[in-house]
């Protein structure tokens, strides 16, 4: 059983420091990465080879995504996922090898028709980032989600997104990985971009000054898609930003807490 020396651990620590994670998570991952390296050394690897392989498996981007996932799963309300009886039955196959009919068979009568399960989907990242780099959505709202008096038509309409204050030309970013499904002039909405993400999420960006992506482009979280402007029916430079889940507009701020 290999145990890393203090200077060896310091190499791993230095890598983790670049990710800027909170202390608790950083400390836990330090132990995790060290364990992974020790295991590689036990299998015959040198420290240098094991270190470089482990750090390659854990790029800064990966560490930061893990941090966002932790935040997302702990701060959002549980996504209740109703699993149908069929899916619940299906669930029985994979892990449990068929057991002989046990003595306590009376439970069959109480077979759950539905299993309500909190599903954390580990493979996708919901759009929780701010569409404007370094701009906190909550503190830069000029108009929130929901019923409001329209700034242009001066009557009550449902605001399907949020408006963020920002000067013309401020870069706008994709708030999660996804594919561009619209980029161009969208009439009253001005120059717009729509991005399809995993799990039925779509994000919408209106009134842009211009767009730098095209329909069909695959985007990564944080990639620039255009710049803030005031095109279409807009009373001044701002970003109108929407998040839709399965075609239903939702408050982008609701994903934050």
């Amino acid at each position: 059983m290999t145990i890393l020396t203090k200077p060896q651990v310091a190499h791993v620590e230095a890598h983790l420091a670049h990710a800027g994670l909170p202390d608790g998570l950083s400390g836990e991952l330090l132990d995790h990465l060290c364990c992974a390296i020790e295991q590689e050394i036990d299998k015959g690897s040198t420290f240098d080879a094991a270190l470089s392989e482990t750090l390659q498996n854990w790029p800064i981007r990966h560490l930061q995504k893990l941090h966002r996932d932790v935040r997302f799963t702990t701060k959002t309300k549980p996504m209740l996922y109703r699993i149908s009886a069929a899916a619940a039955l299906l669930a029985g196959i994979a892990f449990l090898s068929p057991l002989p009919w046990p003595a306590e068979a009376d439970h069959v009568k109480t077979l759950p028709i539905e299993l309500a399960t909190t599903v954390n989907d580990f493979l996708f990242e919901p759009p929780t980032a701010s569409p404007i780099a370094g701009v906190d959505m909550k503190n830069n709202l000029s108009s929130g989600f929901g019923m409001r008096t329209h700034p242009y038509f001066k009557r009550k309409v449902f605001h399907k997104g949020i408006d963020l204050k920002a000067p013309t030309g401020t870069p706008v970013m994709a708030t999660a990985d996804g594919q561009v499904i619209f980029a161009g002039d969208d009439g009253d909405y001005g120059i717009s971009v729509r991005i399809l993400h995993e799990d039925g999420y779509v994000t919408v960006y209106h009134h842009l000054h211009d767009h730098t992506v095209q329909k069909g482009d695959q985007l990564l979280l944080g990639q620039t898609i255009g710049a803030v402007g005031s095109t279409g029916l807009s009373t001044g430079p701002h970003l109108h930003y929407e998040v839709r889940k399965d075609d239903v507009p939702m408050d982008p701020l609701a994903l934050l807490d």
Binding site: G92, H107, L111
Partner: peptide, 15 residues
């Protein structure tokens, strides 16, 4: 445990 076992039992029976 109860839930997973009862699902498993149904399969054991059906199969």
């Amino acid at each position: 445990r109860q839930e997973w076992l009862s699902v498993n039992r149904i399969f054991a029976q059906l199969w």
